[in-house]
């Protein structure tokens, strides 16, 4: 008995020891800083970049429409930029979904040996420097880049197209960067897909389109949703891609946040913008959780 208690105490100490480092790291350098961002977003910006410790909801007011009298005007530009960010993030999700979905089926049909190798090839670019992958597109899209030179050589165009510094370039860049993020969850789902159900549907006389819409699509939906969320989150807050491929023409909320912190030094305003991004992320995750819960409860498959 005493030995048991001794062992239990020892086990508890081991657990505490194992959990202490992560608790310190994520507690002090993750949760507290995020909490401070929330607090900062309600503080008044100071004169020279600091903050005044007074309640000040007008950071949000400047963005959403209740500015502090005439001193700070409400400018719908911030909402418009946020809407642009949402649009580009959603476009990125849709295009990478369309690109990755058939690819997942392709990989799942390979033989075991090839499968491992192809999966490795698809995962690998994730570890190639983000900047360098963007740089590749800079070289591809610029007026004297690969795309324009090739098109001119083929005689399709006589003047270089203005491909760089546009919304298209930004979406293209983000799709390229986030493809491995989208692919892996979809693949994990497609790989588990029970093809006997597909055959049953065909045997029962369903057309290929019916089989796809009624059997394959619902069965692979969880992977598509997971991939979409994993791509949507970093795409929405992105600032590196728009600042390099979008130039001065494309503004996303990430660029505004960056400028509030490093140039105009209005940290409370930047914090409010960052929380707008966080709020969108939380909303997306909550919808997903509720839907997943309902799917589990509603369909006792």
């Amino acid at each position: 008995m005493a030995g048991d208690r001794f062992m239990a105490a020892r086990k508890r100490n081991a657990l505490l020891l194992l959990l202490a480092p992560i608790s310190i790291i994520l507690g002090i350098f993750f949760l507290i800083p995020l909490g401070i961002v929330v607090v900062y977003s309600f503080l008044e910006p100071g004169l020279y970049g600091g903050v005044e410790w007074t309640w000040y909801p007008y950071n949000y007011g400047r963005i959403l429409g209740w500015p502090l009298n005439d001193y700070e005007e409400f400018d719908p530009i911030y909402l418009k930029i946020f809407a642009t960010s949402l649009k580009y993030a959603l476009m990125t999700v849709v295009f990478s979904l369309l690109i990755c979905y058939p690819a997942a089926f392709w990989v799942s049909r390979r033989s075991e040996r090839w499968k491992g190798f192809v999966l490795f090839l698809i995962t690998l670019p994730f570890f190639a420097s983000l900047l360098i992958r963007i740089y590749a597109w800079l070289l591809l899209l610029r007026p004297t880049g690969f795309v324009n030179t090739a098109l001119e050589a083929a005689g399709i165009i006589s003047q270089p197209l203005d491909l760089l510094f546009s919304g298209t370039a930004v979406v293209l860049g983000m799709v390229y960067i986030f493809t491995p993020f989208m692919f892996l969850p979809i693949y994990a789902n497609v790989e588990k897909l029970d093809f006997s159900l597909v055959r049953a549907s065909q045997d029962l006389g369903a057309s290929p389109i019916q089989t796809f819409l009624r059997v394959i699509l619902p069965l692979t939906a969880p992977g598509m949703v997971a991939g979409s969320i994993i791509v949507f989150i970093p795409a929405l807050g992105n600032f590196i891609v728009p600042s390099l491929l979008g130039g001065a023409k494309v503004q996303m909320t990430g660029n505004l946040i960056e400028r509030s912190f490093l140039q105009s030094r209005d940290w409370p305003f930047g914090s409010a913008l960052a929380l707008l991004i966080m709020a969108s992320v939380v909303v997306v995750l909550m919808i997903q959780t509720v839907k997943a819960g309902r799917a589990k409860g509603g369909r006792p498959a």
Binding site: L26, V37, E258, S271
Partner: peptide, 23 residues
């Protein structure tokens, strides 16, 4: 803890960046 460990991967980089800067 399981949820907490997923969070750093779900929070956008830029938010973590500014949070650490302010901290």
């Amino acid at each position: 803890y399981q949820a907490l460990l997923l969070l750093p991967m779900l929070v956008p980089d830029i938010v973590l960046g500014i949070a650490l800067l302010i901290f």
